[in-house]
Amino acid sequence: MGKIDLIDAHVHLYDEENLSSLRWMDKSLPISCEHTATKYRAQNWNQESSQFNLRGVIYIESDVKTDLSRGLEGFIPAIRELKFVIEQSIKEEGLIIAIVPWAPVPLGPQVMELYIDELFENINLQKISLVKGFRFLLQDKPDGIMVSRKFIESIKWMAGKNFVFELGIDFHRRGDGQYREVGVLFESVKDATFVIDHFGKPNLAADGFSDNFNAWKRSMKSIHETATKNNNAVYLKLSGLFSELDKHAENLSYEEIVQRATPYFEYALQTFGPFRVIWGSDWPVCKLNGGETAFPLWRNVTMDILNSLEASDDEKQRIFSINAMDAYNIHAS
């Protein structure tokens, strides 16, 4: 086949000014420097030598320091973040084709509406149309938050507005507890669209691999069946596995990385099907455990695994771009 269109469905951006707003950032981290849209394009893309044709990126909120207890004042970092991303979309016109900002989902629809009015104030209507959904990162939040009444009401409100909910959960560090809560959420909300980040963050450590893998499979199967029963469109993002390795990627052979990741790809394709999986790089976070060349490394790992699983050309095209357009309601330009 010719070049494959690629939409990178999981990208974070920030400049020096925004570093202090990131909840997880530490000055000792190698990515504690600006990672702008221009740097993304320059670092990751050489179109002439690539088998891919970049169609754009989806910006996912970067976990800024918001505070639910302070009302709109506590949401200011997220409002600033969106304005920064809009500026980036202007500087690198055509690169950012969808945005998923932070939202105060646990506070219910009334607060959501107030927040979104504030979020969209003074932003060009054409740029507002880039916002396709919202994320409230759950991987580090207390148990019970996503099954609270107000949280569920917010998700129903989002579904009614055709917004996607980006679901960041963590099997590696939280076990199956968060997956059980996702099952309750999917049971409580019908006809909604969800995107699960980073394979749901399984554990790719070498020791106990079989037990880890089988436990993840059982939990993933359960939430997928619940979603299907309630007519929820759930997409699984093929991203973030470098962060779940027990070693830095440079300390593993390419073959070992492929070997560890392949069962997760295979199960994702078997369970969700080639119409409901989406590729993302998790740039620049992927560089923390994947090194400076993490972006092409992950892209190559994905392609080699898809080839080994005998994915068709059409399936590859869906995974690398078409499914993201469907999930995030992106219209072809």
Rank of each mutant, 00 (worst) to 15 (best):
M1S: 12
M1C: 13
G2L: 10
G2S: 12
I4V: 11
L6R: 01
L6P: 12
D8N: 06
H10S: 03
D15L: 14
E17A: 07
L19F: 02
S32K: 10
Y40W: 10
N44M: 10
S49D: 13
E61G: 00
V64L: 00
L68C: 00
E73F: 03
G74F: 02
I79C: 01
R80P: 00
I86R: 06
I90Q: 07
E92S: 06
E93G: 02
G94E: 01
L95I: 02
I96W: 06
A98S: 07
I99E: 06
A103K: 02
P104M: 03
P104Q: 04
V105Y: 03
G108Q: 03
Y115N: 09
F120M: 12
E121W: 10
N124M: 08
N124E: 10
I145V: 12
S148N: 08
R149N: 04
K150D: 07
S154T: 01
S154M: 00
K156P: 08
W157F: 14
M158K: 04
F163Y: 15
F163C: 11
F165R: 07
L167N: 05
G168N: 03
G168C: 04
D170W: 12
R173P: 03
R173D: 10
R174Q: 14
D176H: 13
Q178N: 07
G183K: 07
V184H: 13
S188R: 12
S188N: 12
V189I: 15
V189D: 01
K190W: 04
D191I: 07
T193A: 01
I196G: 00
D197E: 11
H198M: 05
G200D: 13
K201A: 11
N203V: 10
A205M: 06
A206Q: 13
G208K: 11
F209G: 04
S210N: 06
S210A: 02
N214K: 05
K217H: 02
M220E: 04
M220H: 08
S222R: 12
K229V: 14
N230Y: 10
Y235S: 14
L236G: 12
K237F: 15
L238N: 09
L241H: 09
E244N: 06
K247F: 14
H248M: 11
Y254N: 00
I257H: 09
R260Y: 05
F265W: 07
E266F: 07
E266C: 04
G273R: 11
R276G: 02
I278N: 01
W279Q: 03
S281I: 04
W283K: 02
N289Q: 15
E292A: 14
F295T: 15
T302K: 09
T302R: 00
D304W: 09
K316N: 04
R318D: 08
A324Y: 06
N329D: 09
H331K: 08
